[in-house]
Design a protein around this nucleic acid. Sequence first.
RNA 1: GCGCCCUUCGUCUAUCGGUUAGGACGACAGCCUUUCACGUUGUAAAGACGGGUUCGAUUCCCGUAGGGCGCGCCA
Length: 476
Amino acid sequence: MPDPIVTRFAPSPTGFLHIGGGRTALFNWLLAKKLGGKMLLRIEDTDRARSTKEAIDAILDGLHWLGLTWDGDVVYQFARAARHREVAEDMLAKGKAYHCYATPEELEAMREEAKAQGKPMRYDGRWRDRSETDRQEAAARGLKPVIRLKAPQTGETVVEDLVQGRVTWANENLDDLVLLRSDGTPTYMLAVVVDDHDMAVTHIIRGDDHLTNAARQTQIYEANGWKVPAMAHIPLIHGADGAKLSKRHGALGVDAYRALGYLPAALRNYLVRLGWSFGDQEIFSTEEMIAAFDLKNVGRSPARFDFAKLENINGHYMRHTPDAELMAAIEQVLPHIEGGAEIAARLDGGLRAKWLEAMPGLKERAKTLVELIDGAKFLYAARPLALDDKARDILDKGGRAVLKALLPRLEAVTQWDAATLEAAVRAESEATGQKLGMLAQPLRAALTGRSTSPGIFDVFAVIGREESLARIRDQA
RNA sequence: GCGCCCUUCGUCUAUCGGUUAGGACGACAGCCUUUCACGUUGUAAAGACGGGUUCGAUUCCCGUAGGGCGCGCCA
């Protein structure tokens, strides 16, 4: 029986879950779902100085929001330090590693010299074959050794990558990396290998910034006689200018995307198509995504993050989300957006009902939840309405007279629904020879305070007779 | 500097040696229309460059250029 599929997402908690990490998690999650396996979550918190509880919470929160669930308990790497040390000692005992007493100053000097001579900056292996007496002497001088891997110096190390293909390094280009620091704590390189092995990980999907690490980690696997998991190094996401994603571009935490009003399903859809494709298909339900996903179709070149496309996809998802569901999404996002708390406080049953009624007109005019929420302001705006510049302009340039003329007709309407109101306004249009737009725009300005809104007769209906007439009288 | 990787419309991408190089976003134009949208129709827009291999290269090989990543007792 083949091994059960196990993927893992292994972020280091030194900051929020950024968009590239989100995509890496998504790919791991998709592969696990597709193959009926599990996705594990490991927090790589061995850097005690930089790891924070806030970052861990942000990462877990981000994954939850994105809808990416992991199996089993979260593994905290730092808690496994004793096991890592045990492996390092074991490698030492087997002659696969050795004590190195080179000081940080020595190492720095070595790098300086290599740089000056235009040579590769690598550890030169000066303690690799030292005698036991040399080591004892160094220890006697009070030096604390690190444990380094006794890496092969000839031949090559090969990574059969599911995305990158077969990638080869001459071993002479790879130096003896540190496995255990002089203070007895494991390095990332050792910890990752030991953990992935112990956690029975079968597929490692991560950013291709780890590709070189893959070679060095392969050497550690081989030194221990362990099976090397399948690896897939996916290209990084770049900013719109092609440079590495920075805070200026889109290297925001996924929580920022929530605050910008994107739907998790839309972000997932956008992210999965960055570097991966399935023919000409652009929109994928979660089920379709899982069924179609395949590492074979992941490209090798980096993709640029494009907010315009994300907005388009988000708009698509909003228009196709049932109104009640969208309402729930709005209420969930309110605490995360500016001014959301006040809106949440006003959102009683009455407003919710109105909002739901207006939703069809609202959602096709917004690309994000934030835009949708903004567009809904007329539902609860206090009289007299604040007018934006364009609305004021419409009213100042003849709009008020139009409103005065329309008022009697509107006041005469008793059956306050869109069709009846439209008939009334059209009657005025025909009577005076003014185009419908000439009448609709002043009404829109008076009812919403803006020059754009959902269909004006729907606005009438949602706002209700008394409020509508009052808003018109305010401006007439 | 050394190593590894990448290179099709502005952007995301399709193409498994032979295509009018396709789709999507964005842009522009038209239609629809009470505004804005939605929808819809159409237009412009690409194989980095130079050599090979081949009857035939976007596709395979080499080189050049450009870009990315890595080179810590960080992860």
